[in-house]
């Protein structure tokens, strides 16, 4: 059963990965190269420590970077698809929503965990950023915040489960409390670790928004493709698979 989930999750990851690969090829690659070159042309003196790697020539050609980046994008979505499938298998009984809505709830939790919460402290940085901490410290912060994101997602889902029986709107409100609290408190109590003196602030905003939207799109695509694959598999495995059983029950019961 877990294997069925994993299979669908990886397939859904391939679907999302192809879309994200195209995004990397046609948006992220040219945009990143542009910002990289724009940052180079002026203001090179300040913050040379963080530019150490970028200020020097590329180790590999731009073509290699472009191709490997596209491939990494595809792999990234496949990895997320696999993680999504295992998490859905384990936590499906605890997730609110039915008829596939629970997949989107989990996708939202995944986005909150893997991307949104860490970004509150370590936002997506365009090339040429000045960093307060070294790479090892930032990786540590990022990983720690993934853990916090998972806790916040779990708190939101549990709060919804508590309050929703009384009124669905009350449930949504209860679920929003831990998320809003994190979004408000976390950036306020942590220092600004990334500054981008070389790049126009509008460009940085656009760059960060693109990162956020593209990551959110991966999760939505994974959840949507997963649901589609599951619906297609359901009639075929009818009553043999316990998974299909529970799904039929869910759709049948009011």
């Amino acid at each position: 059963m877990l294997v069925d989930y994993l299979q669908r999750g990886v397939l859904a990851g391939v679907v999302a990965g192809l879309a994200y690969g195209l995004y990397v090829a046609f948006v992220a690659n040219p945009l990143t190269e542009y910002v990289h070159d724009a940052g180079h042309s002026h203001g090179h003196g300040a913050g040379d420590h963080s530019h150490a790697q970028e200020g020097t020539e590329h180790v590999v050609s731009e073509t290699t970077t472009a191709l490997v980046s596209v491939g990494s994008g595809v792999l990234w979505a496949i990895l997320l698809g696999g993680l999504f499938a295992v998490a859905l298998y384990l936590f499906e009984p605890a997730l609110p929503g039915r008829d596939g809505l629970e997949s989107y709830v989990l996708a939202g939790a995944g986005f909150l965990t893997v991307s949104a919460t860490p970004w509150l402290v370590v936002p997506p940085a365009a090339p040429g950023a000045d960093h307060l901490y070294g790479i090892d410290a930032r990786i540590g912060i990022y990983v720690g915040l993934v853990g916090l994101g998972a806790a916040v997602s779990a708190a939101a889902i549990l709060a919804y489960g508590r309050a929703a029986p009384r009124h669905p709107a009350l449930g949504a409100l209860a679920a929003a409390v831990p998320i809003v609290a994190t979004v408000v408190v976390l950036p306020a109590v942590t220092p600004t670790v990334v500054t981008q003196p070389d790049v126009a602030s509008e460009l940085v905003t656009a760059y960060q928004a693109l990162a956020a939207l593209s990551q959110a799109a991966i999760w939505v695509l994974i959840a949507g493709a997963f649901n589609r694959l599951r619906r297609r598999a359901d009639p075929a495995v009818n009553a043999v698979d316990t998974d299909a059983d529970s799904h039929d029950q869910l759709t049948a019961s009011p």
């Binding site: 690659n29 490997v68 990494s72 990162a211 593209s214």
Partner: peptide
Amino acid sequence: MHNFRHGAG
């Protein structure tokens, strides 16, 4: 992987 990592935040 430079562009991917930047693009994905």
